[in-house]
Simulated assay, not measured.
Amino acid sequence: MRLVSLSHVHDPATTNVYPGDPPFELETVATIEQDGYYLRLVRQGEHTGTHWGAPGHFNPGQPLADELDLADLHLRAVKLDVREKCVRDPDYAVTIADVEAWERTHGRIPDESMVVIWTGWDAKWGTAEFTNAGADGAPHHPGFAVETARWLIDTGRVGHRGGTGTDAFSPDVGADATYTVSHLIYQRHRISLEILANLEALPETGAHILCGGQINRAGSGSPALIYGLLP
């Protein structure tokens, strides 16, 4: 088995921040020359850059970061390449038909999987195109259609412990201010992986994902090193 990184490097000069979230800042607080060691203070939201979210991020009473099981952060993964459709429509919502077409080639998605969509947004990281803000300041990026999220849950494909992943800001279509898909996915022990990188290296099937990051008490999630484990 080998590892591939699915995380962006955090850099205040390039890290795209979701509208309204706190800015990402690094402050040097000790240097080798003056203090004998090098240390920086990090200021960021729990969902800055590549990260995973816990169910309690959107739903009160659902598990938070310190209430998840270790197995919730290690899941088999499948990848749907929807880049061509997203080039034509930045607000594209992945459909049940898209998933069924994928399954005709690769077989049924195993229960409790991490279903990752590769929209092409990872290539826009560090530019204004990543947020792709409209006239009202709202981001425009692809995501899952609401009915697709419900179907993935109801059929067991993400089930009780599984989730969705994306290289964009969230599993919701960016223009959807109701966050309906997030409310659906972020329940039980399901997680969401967001702002993934290097999805070219993740195969369509056969891989697992492993989520790192820090576990904050009552955390909504964590900026993370997210790895693809390839057989």
Rank of each mutant, 00 (worst) to 15 (best):
D91K: 09
V78H: 00
T131W: 02
H106I: 03
R88H: 12
D172C: 11
P110F: 08
G165F: 03
L73N: 02
P110K: 11
A175V: 14
D89Q: 13
F144T: 07
G174M: 08
P171K: 04
L73A: 06
A135Y: 10
G126T: 11
G159M: 06
R88T: 06
P171M: 08
V116W: 02
S113L: 06
R76A: 13
V94E: 00
W121Y: 15
T166F: 01
E67R: 13
K124N: 09
Q62D: 11
T95K: 05
P60L: 12
V173R: 05
T95F: 02
D69Q: 14
R83I: 01
A71M: 11
L73R: 14
H140C: 12
V87R: 14
R104W: 08
H106L: 10
L152C: 10
L68Q: 08
D167H: 02
I96M: 15
V82S: 00
P63R: 04
I109C: 00
T105W: 04
G165A: 11
D66Y: 10
K124D: 11
T148K: 01
I153D: 07
P142T: 00
A168L: 03
A135E: 13
K85G: 04
E103Y: 04
R108E: 14
S113F: 06
K124F: 12
T178V: 06
I109P: 00
V116N: 01
V146A: 03
A135V: 11
P139F: 06
W121P: 00
E147R: 14
I117Q: 00
A101P: 04
A65L: 01
T119A: 05
F130A: 04
T105E: 14
L70N: 08
D172M: 06
F169L: 13
Q62H: 12
P63G: 12
L68M: 13
V87Y: 09
W125F: 15
D81L: 05
W125T: 10
A97V: 10
A128C: 07
V173K: 03
D81H: 06
K79Y: 09
E112P: 00
W151T: 08
A77R: 01
R150M: 07
D154W: 08
L152V: 06
R150D: 05
W125M: 14
P90W: 01
D122R: 13
R161L: 04
V94L: 15
G126K: 01
C86P: 00
G126V: 12
F130L: 14
A123C: 05
F130N: 02
V94F: 03
V115Y: 00
T95P: 09
R76F: 09
T148R: 01
D111E: 14
E84Q: 15
D91W: 02
S170G: 09
T127M: 10
D154Y: 04
